[in-house]
Design a protein around this nucleic acid. Structure first.
Length: 426
RNA sequence: GUGGGUGUAGUUCAACUGGUUAGAACGCUGGACUGUGGCUCCAGAGGUUGGGGGUUCAAGUCCCCUCACUCACCCCA
């Protein structure tokens, strides 16, 4: 080896070990099933894109674009960026592959790593993982309600406790500019009292002031105009209808008129699923409608909506050992002596070829040590072969839970062990 | 990017106001049982006290720098 320094994972990234992967797979499996039920197909998009794609969709003045992207020039000088979220790529792919020419709706889901240069803390990493989906081509409130219902259903199946669903409507190209103006008018005389941050973004992105957690800003916005009061007729009706469906379908949620998302492409419905058990990074999933995004990319006017969840945060909320216990216990082959070990290795291979997980000791340890190993890896059956057994042509097959041992002939040992193991696995 | 807290065996933690050879539990390896797991008992391996510098006769302990983790701000999934 002769290593001169120890390598460590870089700041903000994590190894996910087998023990934890069980929970991850459990989540992934659940969402794959739910997505299938709701008609979503999986899409796999690149991990990096042209920088401008994200700048344009997420918003030039958003924090993500301003200071959190992993942006680098490639060898030919193009500016590329590790994706900080999934929607921009999926929308790009949707257009590039002419999915906009298909009969709507088009429903796509994805899962994978995202990258944001942020200060790591609980539930926040520089490489993190999202599961998300995008739903194109349906403008009506049924789409919003269905998406919310699906999210609610999936989390319900996972049994995540203590979640709260908050929804809001931000209006559209018609009424949002008016609301924006009203907000600026309201806050401008108060600008002195706003926090430094909000003062700066008042003109660029006034909606964000609503989201500020500073006590002073919180106080100042008490009398601020509400999104709800400015929704145009269409947006108001849309929002009413969404809420109506949710109530009818028993999807619990509360309206939070101060909730603003950090990505600029949202219109009308937005939502957030939060947990009180995550500390300050409390959003587990979030999303909303983005009816103007496809068009802003030069595509045909296409309504769309979607959501994404944070894997690391969701896994934090899962009960201990979630997704475990699905492992099939192996048959352990305990071999004593060189000849026995050669045969043991062959048995292990044969068992595996029959679809039975099998293991043995690679180091030629004592039988006691091998038994302990078998016990620890949860083997239900151990095939014991040593000189005595080889001579007699009969091996021992031990049931670890009952401690009963039967003799089996060399020829039938593998078959017998495989059958018992299968039966025990049921 | 800003502020607070914390870094000691693989893991969770000890070590009085600086003072001999840095301990325990769990885990790991072996033995008691020389060919049979879990329980018990015994033994063993395993540490440049995150890294670097400084103060001191003496630093795990005090000071500085750095890195990481953590909490909050910020931001968001």
């Amino acid at each position: 080896m002769g290593g001169e320094r120890k390598f460590r994972a870089v700041r903000g990234v994590k190894d996910i070990l087998p023990e934890q992967v069980a929970a991850w797979r459990h989540v992934e499996r659940t969402f794959r099933e739910v997505f299938a039920l709701y008609g979503y197909g999986e899409i796999r998009v690149p991990i990096f894109e042209e920088t401008a794609l994200f700048a344009r969709s997420i918003g030039e003045t958003s924090d993500i674009v301003e200071k959190e992207m992993y942006t680098f020039p490639d060898k030919s000088g193009n500016s590329l960026t590790l994706r900080p979220e999934g929607t921009a790529s999926v929308v790009r792919a949707f257009m590039e592959n002419s999915l906009d020419k298909l009969q709507p709706p088009v429903k796509l889901f994805y899962m994978g790593p995202m990258f944001r240069y942020e200060r790591p803390q609980k539930g926040r990493f520089r490489q993190f993982h999202q599961i998300g989906c995008e739903f194109f081509g349906v403008a009506g409130p049924e789409a919003d309600a269905e998406l919310l219902q699906m999210v609610h259903y999936a989390f319900d199946r996972l049994g995540v406790p203590g979640l709260k669903l908050k929804i809001n409507s931000l209006g559209d190209g018609e009424c949002r500019p008016k609301y924006r103006e009203a907000l600026i008018d309201y806050f401008r005389p108060l600008a002195e009292k706003l926090c430094e941050n909000c003062r700066r973004r008042l003109e660029a992105n006034p909606l964000r002031v609503l989201d500020c957690k500073a006590a002073s800003c919180r106080e100042l916005r008490r009398e601020a105009p509400r999104t709800g009061d400015f929704l145009c007729g269409d947006c108001g009706n849309h929002f009413q209808a969404v809420k109506g469906y949710l109530e009818e379908w028993g999807v619990p949620c509360t309206v939070d008129s101060e909730m603003v998302r950090g990505l600029d492409y949202y219109t009308r419905t937005t939502f957030e699923l939060t947990s009180d058990r995550l500390g300050s990074q409390d959003a587990v999933a979030a999303g909303g409608r983005y009816d103007e995004l496809v068009e802003s990319f030069g595509g045909p006017p296409t309504p769309g909506l979607g959501f994404a969840l944070g894997m690391e945060r969701l896994v934090l909320l899962l009960p201990e050992g979630a997704g475990g216990g699905e492992r099939v216990p192996p048959v352990f082959v305990a071999a004593l002596g060189e000849e026995a070990r050669r045969i043991g290795l062959r048995y292990v291979t044969e068992l595996r070829r029959k679809g039975v997980p099998a293991a043995l000791d690679y180091d030629g340890r004592s039988l006691k040590s091998q038994m302990r190993r078998a016990d620890r890896m949860g083997a239900r059956h151990v095939l014991i072969l040593g000189d005595k057994e080889l001579e007699a042509g009969r091996l021992l097959l031990r049931d670890m839970s009952t401690k009963e041992q039967e003799e089996v002939s060399i020829g039938s040992a593998v078959e017998r062990a495989a059958n018992l193991n299968r039966k025990a696995a049921e």
